[in-house]
Design a protein around this nucleic acid. Sequence first.
DNA 1: ACCTGAACACCGTTCAAGT
DNA 2: ACCTGAACACCGTTCAAGT
Lengths: 200, 200
Amino acid sequence: MPRRSEHSLDEIRALALDAVEDLVASHGPTAISARKVAAQIGYTVGMLYHVFDNVDDLVLQANARLVDQLARANEAAAAGNRPQRVIARMAHNYLSLARQAPARWQLVFVHTMRDGRPVPDWYRQRTDRLFALVEEQLQRLAPRRRPAAAALAARTLWSSVHGICLLAVSDKLDIGGSTSAEKALDSLLTHYLGSWAQSR
Amino acid sequence: MPRRSEHSLDEIRALALDAVEDLVASHGPTAISARKVAAQIGYTVGMLYHVFDNVDDLVLQANARLVDQLARANEAAAAGNRPQRVIARMAHNYLSLARQAPARWQLVFVHTMRDGRPVPDWYRQRTDRLFALVEEQLQRLAPRRRPAAAALAARTLWSSVHGICLLAVSDKLDIGGSTSAEKALDSLLTHYLGSWAQSR
DNA sequence: ACCTGAACACCGTTCAAGT
DNA sequence: ACCTGAACACCGTTCAAGT
């Protein structure tokens, strides 16, 4: 029973998160287990529990990387452009990131806390941030409207974008054969956002 | 080891599906396992596998009941009214059924096939039906538009409704405190559907 | 101090054997 | 024919014990 001491806790943490991504990418979101991740990085399961609280923590930390990637892309998109264009970029960023790594995003979509534990605050803040970025743009778009109106529109619009990306990644959207998620996003943006921007 | 023979296979099937609903309602969607369902109805796990292919089959059959309930409600809503009103009813049917039995709908939202098995056709047809019902109304609403346009709008709209209901049931929508899913649905219907109906 | 390995209480699934 | 119970290969989580 050799000890390793080759890696710091932070390094082990990074190795584990990489292992989650590799396993998901090659064997799908259901392939994740503490034991498999441990085996992949050459440690025992017990070791994982010195670095992560539990599997939920492990998965959420892996998922947070993707959410952060989307948030960064959306923050970058916010620079300069007209709000309507920024929001369109954000929506397409979501879909295109989801298409780039469908299995990893499926893990984001599919994960639920064991038992009925609540989603931890640090993770919630990251997903809330995505709504906030949309809300900022809607406020720019219609500065004279009540903030509550922009908040409602942001939640409506981003939930809808989420629904489209979710069904796209799980192949439930392309029913007849020809509908693409990109077209659905554009339809949503044209009609929802177009109408919202004009009204009052 | 007493044999029972008290119930036919169909009765056992119904008992098991009821047990799934009871367990989910009282202990949440993560509480479902073949062993627990078997225990709840007084049979062994082995017995379950004479009635269901596997747990996916068990869960999907339970979930299909909810999907069917929504489909029936939406078919009933289709009678008589103006298409725009029918679609609004359908969307609110979805949300209100989801609110009536949040845990059971969470099971619908959260379930994914073990390994990477595909969703069986018989279940897919049921969820596709929900899209089809919306599509029919959109064709009524704009009879002169190309069928592909109605198909795209149906998928866009229903994916969005799905996204809103999904986030509503998992409590991820009410960020600031005041946004309700009902308002988000109405916002979606007003702006998306309103704009789509008017354009051309 | 760092990490292991075994233990505990669970899973899904199969199938020979009992009645 | 109907159903069981034990087996197999997995889980998540904990923690005394080893180095």
